[in-house]
């Protein structure tokens, strides 16, 4: 009995355009976020050029918002860099998870693919990699999702900058930063350990305020991660016993 249907492998172009098409629906969330970032960059005291180039150089929504927030409040550069890195740690996981598919590609591919590796591009491409047949050109899929997101992010940042320049200075636009973070954190809390991580980070961020160099950010972040991990570790052990 034949239980295998012979499927024709996709060409490079087909992989690329499927990536683009599958990524497009996610742009509903990305475009407004990019515009918010553009407005926020100006509201935090960056110039229009700095705001637009930050999207180009860093190309990561949450990291860019963390950057402008910390920069605007006079946090020392080393703490800004460390905080941005901590926010970015999740990319190591994405990078690890696509490594088995793309590690053998030449550097001219791995470098741009790494630059384009964002939450949304990863989410769409990993689904394709895991659930569909391997193909010689599957890296074109990530190129498609990545470039789609990249273009939308750059254009929406520019729109945000142009729009932000027309808003009155007196508006409390910097309040958009905590609001963005609330919108990102709330749906991410799915289990008890997540809640413990959140509450620990919140408490430490207030209690640790007197620490020098505004290092309370890092202390609170690490404290939250450790608290969440410990909770998960302890609760999983209970289940096993």
């Amino acid at each position: 009995m034949l239980n295998q249907t012979q499927s024709i492998p996709l060409s490079a172009g087909q992989e690329f355009w499927r990536g683009v098409r599958q990524e497009l629906p996610l742009m509903l969330g990305v475009v407004p976020f990019g515009m918010v970032f553009g407005v926020l960059g100006l509201a935090s005291g960056l110039t229009a050029l700095q705001t637009v180039l930050l999207s180009l150089i860093v190309f990561g929504g949450a990291s860019q918002v963390v950057f402008v927030q910390l920069w605007a409040t006079g946090v020392p550069p080393a703490v800004v860099g460390t905080s941005v890195s901590v926010v970015n740690l999740r990319h190591v996981l994405y990078s690890a998870s696509i490594a088995q598919y793309f590690r053998t590609l030449p550097l001219v591919w791995r470098i741009p693919l790494a630059y384009l590796l964002t939450d949304e591009a990863y989410a769409v491409t990993i689904t394709r990699l895991r659930n569909e047949e391997k193909s010689l050109y599957q890296h074109y899929h990530l190129l498609g999702t990545g470039i789609t997101l990249w273009l939308c992010w750059q254009i929406s940042t520019i729109i945000g900058v142009l729009f932000g320049a027309t808003l009155p200075q007196s508006w409390p636009l910097d309040f958009v930063i905590p609001l963005t973070f609330i919108a990102l954190v709330a749906p991410a809390i799915r289990q008890r350990a997540d809640l413990v991580a959140c509450i620990s980070a919140a408490v430490i961020s207030i209690v640790a305020q007197p620490l020098p160099w505004k290092s309370w950010i890092i202390v609170a972040a690490v404290g939250g991660i450790v608290a969440g991990y410990m909770t998960k570790f302890l609760t999983t052990n209970e289940v096993i016993k």
Binding site: A62, V87, P178, F181, A197, A220, A221, G224, Y229
Partner: peptide, 12 residues
């Protein structure tokens, strides 16, 4: 736990 911890630490 990284995103939750970092974003909360900045927002609160």
């Amino acid at each position: 736990f990284v995103p939750i911890a970092v974003l909360t630490a900045i927002l609160v």
